Computed example of a mutant assay.
Amino acid sequence: MPKLIKLYITQVLIGFAISAAFVAALLSFNVANMWHLVTHSDIGWLAVLILWLANGVVFSGVQFAITIMRMAGKDDDDHGGKRDDIPLRVLEPIRVESTDRS
C-alpha cells in the first residue's frame, strides 16, 4: 500500500477518534440538553451516529491537512527569481487626457 494511502487512513482514524471524544464530551456535559434529547427519543442513537459521522469527516479533513502542511520543508534557498532595482524612468508618471465629457 502506498505511503500516502497509509497516512490518509491513519489520519482518518485519528479524526474519527477525536470526533468520538468530542461527541462523548457534548453528551457528558449535556450541552444544549443533548443527553436528555438523545436518551428520551426513539431514534436518539441515529442523531448521535450522524453527529459522530459529520464531526468525523470534519476532524479527519483537518487532521490530514495539518499533517500534510507540517511535512513541508523550509527552503533556505532563494527561489524567488531575480530581484534587481527598478529603474526610476519606468516609474515616471504619464499625463493622459480624458476624452469623455459626461
Results as ranks from 00 to 15, higher is better:
Val31Ile: 15
Phe29Lys: 08
Ile5Glu: 00
Trp52Ile: 02
Ala20Asn: 03
Ile5Met: 04
Ala21Asn: 08
Asn55Cys: 14
Thr39Phe: 11
Ile14Trp: 00
Gly61Val: 03
Gln11Arg: 12
Ser41Glu: 08
Gln63Gly: 01
Gln63Cys: 11
Leu51Lys: 04
Ile9Tyr: 01
Leu91Gln: 13
Met1Ser: 09
Ile18Phe: 15
Ile43Tyr: 14
Asp76Phe: 15
Leu4Val: 07
Ala72Cys: 07
Gly80Gln: 10
Ile94Glu: 13
Val90Trp: 10
Ala20Leu: 13
Ile86Phe: 07
His79Asp: 14
Arg101Lys: 15
Ala72Arg: 11
Ala17Gly: 06
Ser19Thr: 06
Ala54Gly: 12
Arg95Gln: 13
Lys74Met: 09
Asp84Thr: 09
Ile14Gly: 00
Lys82Thr: 10
Arg70Ile: 02
Ala24Lys: 12
Ala21Cys: 13
Gly61Ser: 05
Val62Gly: 02
Leu4Ser: 12
Asn33Gly: 13
Asp84Ala: 10
Thr10Arg: 05
Asp75Val: 10
Lys74Ser: 07
Val57Ile: 15
Val96Ile: 11
Arg101Thr: 12
Val12Thr: 11
Phe59Ala: 02
Phe64Asp: 00
His40Tyr: 06
Leu46Pro: 02
Gly80Met: 12
Gly80His: 15
Asn33Leu: 09
Ala32Leu: 15
Ala25Tyr: 08
Glu97Trp: 12
Ile66Ser: 04
Glu92Met: 14
Ala65Trp: 00
Phe59Met: 05
Gly61Lys: 02
Pro2Leu: 07
Val62Asn: 00
Gly73His: 08
Arg70Lys: 15
Pro87Ala: 10
Met34Ala: 14
Val57Glu: 03
Asp42Arg: 09
Gly44Trp: 01
Asn55Gly: 08
Phe22Arg: 00
Val96Leu: 14
Ile18Trp: 03
Gly81Ser: 07
Asp85Tyr: 09
Thr10Ala: 07
His40Met: 05
Trp45Asp: 11
Trp52Asp: 00
Asp42Phe: 08
Ser28Ile: 10
Leu88Tyr: 09
Gln63Ala: 11
Gly15Met: 05
Tyr8Ala: 02
Phe64Tyr: 11
Ile86His: 07
Val31Trp: 13
Ser41Asn: 12
Ala21Pro: 04
Leu26Ala: 07
Leu53Ala: 15
Asp100Phe: 11
Ala32Gln: 08
Thr10Met: 04
Val62Tyr: 03
Asn30Ala: 05
Leu26Ile: 14
Arg70Trp: 04
Thr99Val: 12
Asp78Trp: 10
Gly15Arg: 00
Leu53Pro: 03
